[in-house]
């Protein structure tokens, strides 16, 4: 039973591509066949994060338009041979995507892979709606700030109305992944707390990825963080999230600031 997951957020820069690569690499390391699909036509990034930018020949648009066959466009990762990338086109725009063509490609991917992870572009326009349209489940990436949370809320509304599942009257399972979480700043009230985000979005929590220099370092090396250094905090968070996606029960720990003695004595609360 293959599963199509869309990684989406509404807002840009919150970590969709990082999350797609990290979850894809984590799931692939369990031996399951994983395809990650870059839907950000015109702003191709996922190939860089996976270190495959020099190997792109054909892309999603070529396959959608029937110019290339799917196996020609898929790039198999050199480090994990169960992980494949279907890159976006950098020279085209999102209007080149058609609903029918995307549906056909997704169905073809379903036959070959256990997991198809679609990296949605930011926004709510054609690229984003087509990335989510054929998904079975959604991972919503949000940062602990009000604009990101509001945009995620909007995306949840679209997932519940504009997808094939929603139009068939089915409920699409949705998972919240909070990225760039800084426990110290949340503790000081400079960031939304996990409870605040969950109260507004009210969807189940898949994971909390702490703010970390490791993520940027791994991205610049062209290696998903779950592959670059599996022992780091963000990598562990992504591994846990991947196991939860896989149906395992993994206890969730909300990162908390190590309180100073004074804080403990006075019980200081964030305003």
């Amino acid at each position: 039973m293959s599963k199509v997951i869309v990684v989406t957020s509404g807002k840009g820069g919150v970590g969709k591509t990082t999350t797609t690569a990290a979850l894809g690499a984590a799931l692939a390391q369990t031996g399951q066949m994983v395809a990650v699909v870059d839907f950000d036509v015109g702003l191709r990034n996922l190939d860089l994060i996976l270190g495959a930018e020099r190997r792109v020949v054909y892309d999603l648009i070529n396959v959608v338009q029937g110019v290339a066959k799917l196996p020609q466009a898929l790039i198999r990762d050199k480090r994990i041979d169960t992980l494949s990338l279907l890159p976006a086109s950098q020279t085209r725009d999102k209007d080149a995507l058609t609903d029918e063509g995307v549906g056909r490609v997704i169905n073809e991917l379903r036959e070959r892979f256990d997991w198809v992870i679609c990296d949605s572009p930011a926004g709510i326009e054609r690229g984003a709606t087509l990335a989510m349209r054929h998904a079975d489940e959604a991972v919503i990436v949000a940062n602990p700030e009000v604009s990101s949370v509001r945009d995620s809320d909007r995306i949840i509304g679209l997932l519940d109305s504009k997808t094939v599942m929603a139009e068939a009257g089915k409920h699409m399972p949705k998972h919240l992944l909070v990225s760039r979480f800084d426990a110290a700043r949340a503790g000081r009230g400079e960031m939304l707390s996990i409870e605040d985000i969950l109260e507004i979005l009210s969807i189940p929590l898949l994971g909390i990825v702490p703010e970390s220099e490791e993520v940027l370092r791994a991205s610049n090396l062209g290696t998903p963080v779950t592959l670059a250094n599996p022992a780091t905090a963000p990598a562990r968070a992504y591994f846990d999230a991947a196991r939860r996606l896989n149906g395992e029960t993994v206890p969730m720990v909300v990162p908390s600031e190590k309180k100073s003695l004074l804080d403990k004595i006075f019980g200081r609360r964030a305003a």
Binding site: I124, R150, D151, D153, R154, I156, G157, D160, I200, S202
Partner: peptide, 20 residues
């Protein structure tokens, strides 16, 4: 959800969840 608009001129509206 954010961005959604419920318009019902015909009477009362009951929302079991929240208005984002």
């Amino acid at each position: 959800r954010s961005g959604q608009s419920i318009v019902f001129p015909g009477g009362d509206v009951t929302v079991i969840g929240s208005i984002s």
